[in-house]
Design a protein around this nucleic acid. Sequence first.
DNA 1: AGGCCGCCTTAACCTGGGTTAAGCCCAGGT
DNA 2: ACCTGGGCTTAACCCAGGTTAAGGCGGCCT
Lengths: 195, 195
Amino acid sequence: MRYPKLFEHIAALAPLPASEWLKAEALAREQSLDKRALFLRPGDSADRFGLVLQGVFRAVRVSARGEESIKAFRAEGEFIGAYAEMLQGQPSMTAIEALEPGRVLAFQAQDLQSLEAGHPSWAQLARRVAERHYLLKERREQEFLDLSAEERLERFWQEHPHLHGRVPQRDVAAYLGITEVALSRIVSRRRKRAE
Amino acid sequence: MRYPKLFEHIAALAPLPASEWLKAEALAREQSLDKRALFLRPGDSADRFGLVLQGVFRAVRVSARGEESIKAFRAEGEFIGAYAEMLQGQPSMTAIEALEPGRVLAFQAQDLQSLEAGHPSWAQLARRVAERHYLLKERREQEFLDLSAEERLERFWQEHPHLHGRVPQRDVAAYLGITEVALSRIVSRRRKRAE
DNA sequence: AGGCCGCCTTAACCTGGGTTAAGCCCAGGT
DNA sequence: ACCTGGGCTTAACCCAGGTTAAGGCGGCCT
């Protein structure tokens, strides 16, 4: 087994025999990405996804107006890919970009499907992944509905302390749905209040 | 089969033998709700869910500050329940309320689990449901990130034309994340522009 | 019929965040 | 050592949406 830590991480989501994991490893390929390199670019077919071995990634959607908004940050052990588009068989409308030099274990969606045909635990895992993704988005929905930008910022750092110092301020802003300028204002307001 | 239309609706999500559906019907019970009645109230265990036979329902979260925000509207054929809390085994933080007199086919989550043990198509269905819920929330996330309140309103009516006249303005506002007053302003602005 | 209540609108004023633009600081490249 | 550029801050001004408060208009109940 080449990636025991990743296996543990995955098996914690849904029980998975090591033998199945080994089959998956055989289908995957490791990929290194420079800082700023794209794991997935908009327009690509969304049939690839990856598990982060090293580094932090951002999932970016470029809107019709040309503005970037950030759907998620993903670090070690986490899933990267255009999940929504994959489910719908559409080309990716999302870019996945490395914020630091990183390494990813990359899979083809169809390989997963063949694993699924061979053992039921993969379907179970896929279900857990869907449920988990749902819970993340549902939490975010609630934050947009109930919280001010300042409160969302506070939550963000509570929930993602491991991203500290690894993601640029402007990207945090694009994640919160505000501008860099507004974020800077909020930060300095908080700083003053804290004195 | 007592609910053929519902069966069709469900089977369109994931193939389901009629025999399995009949087992589900046997476990379910039909429930009528007056206007304003709650199918689920905050604090209830989240182990019940329903399929709407008749009527429109709203899923409401009451925030810490006491403000209502609306997570979803659900009409005929759709799922109602505190899905997130159900997945996490938590008590419901959501109220599900009938906006009109309605009827629901109500299930216990644990009954579904026993069906799942008996036939694999239930697991498949559960996965599809999770994926579908995810896609809904992901679209909403995108709307909050990229669109103004006015644009969100426009989308709302595009995507939910069947709710026309069935949901009060103030609830639409609470769904969009704005106040009743702001919504009224937007509507009249649009009215004037249309002349 | 009368009264009330729920729902919507309008208006006046306030505030958070957007926009534009200038400037700062630091890291990297030559 | 210098320049450059990327990332962050600050300031001035603007606008969408929040807040509060007052009315309007049905529909429903007795």
